[in-house]
């Protein structure tokens, strides 16, 4: 027989226990609980099914559900580890863990590499780099001539592609980031250290007390 808990907390598909997620990420149990509050908010903004759909992700990022952005698409795809088109709570916490100030720098470097390896080939090709620069320019007011774009891409590639084989592999990327640490600045969200202040999990705690 199932459990009929009148005060039971409704959990969504993909929900994982905070203690489990805290053990696998830089977050404490309280921080994971606070992230669950944020997750509930994001995952119910358009479709209240406890899963973050791409439109909900875009709405939170851009205040516009229909905005398309190459980088937001890439982030969404990397968060969606199961590749089922939605971000579940466990995926959300584990992925955000990489952005925690205390997460290992190797994890941040690896995540950024996967982000920029648009076609998932295991290396970043010159065409991909150019495609990303064009995407960035498209979303900004910056206008650069084709020549200038080529120069920026060529120059960056010549610095990063140490082996000169026309692609940046993980080893080269790691080396390049060690010389240019600012490249992974956006892989750290200082905000995550204060997540319990932003999303105090009073409700969750009182539910725990209720059941005791």
């Amino acid at each position: 027989m199932g459990c009929f808990c009148s005060k039971g907390v409704k959990r969504t598909p993909g929900y994982e226990e905070p203690t489990v997620l805290a053990a696998e990420t830089p977050f404490t149990v309280s921080e994971v609980e606070a992230l669950y509050e944020l997750f509930k908010k994001l995952s119910s903004s358009i479709i209240d099914d406890g899963l973050i759909h791409k439109e909900e992700f875009n709405l939170a990022l851009f205040r516009n559900r229909n905005k398309r952005n190459l980088f937001a698409d890439r982030i969404f795809d990397l968060f969606d580890v199961k590749r089922n088109g939605v971000i579940e709570f466990g995926e959300f916490v584990r992925s955000l863990g990489v952005f925690h100030p205390n997460a290992p720098i190797e994890d941040k470097i690896a995540f950024a590499f996967r982000l920029y390896d648009l076609r998932n080939t295991g290396s970043i090709e010159q065409e991909e780099l150019k495609e990303m620069v064009l995407a960035l320019l498209h979303e900004s007011d910056l206008v650069l001539s084709e020549d200038v774009i080529e120069t920026i891409v060529d120059k960056t590639f010549s610095q990063a592609d140490a082996k000169g084989d026309g692609k940046i592999d993980q080893e080269e990327w790691k080396e390049f980031v060690s010389k240019n640490p600012s490249l992974i600045r956006n892989m750290t969200l200082p905000y995550l250290k204060d997540i319990t202040l932003a999303f105090p999990s009073f409700v969750l705690r009182s539910e725990v007390e209720d059941s005791e």
């Binding site: 944020l38 994001l42 939170a60 990022l61 851009f62 952005n69 190459l70 980088f71 937001a72 698409d73 890439r74 982030i75 955000l96 952005f99 982000l115 920029y116 780099l129 990303m132 620069v133 995407a135 960035l136 979303e139 900004s140 910056l142 650069l144 200038v148 120069t151 920026i152 891409v153 120059k155 960056t156 590639f157 610095q159 990063a160 390049f176 240019n180 600012s182 490249l183 600045r185 956006n186 969200l189 905000y191 997540i195 932003a198």
Partner: peptide, 26 residues
């Protein structure tokens, strides 16, 4: 910094799509 002196990855990292702090705005 003039864009032409910028590293392409530096330029890319300024994308709004990579600024996840927006997720935490109330």
């Amino acid at each position: 910094v003039a864009p032409v002196t910028m590293n392409a990855f530096e330029l890319i990292s300024t994308s709004q799509g990579l600024n996840l702090s927006s997720l935490f705005e109330k």
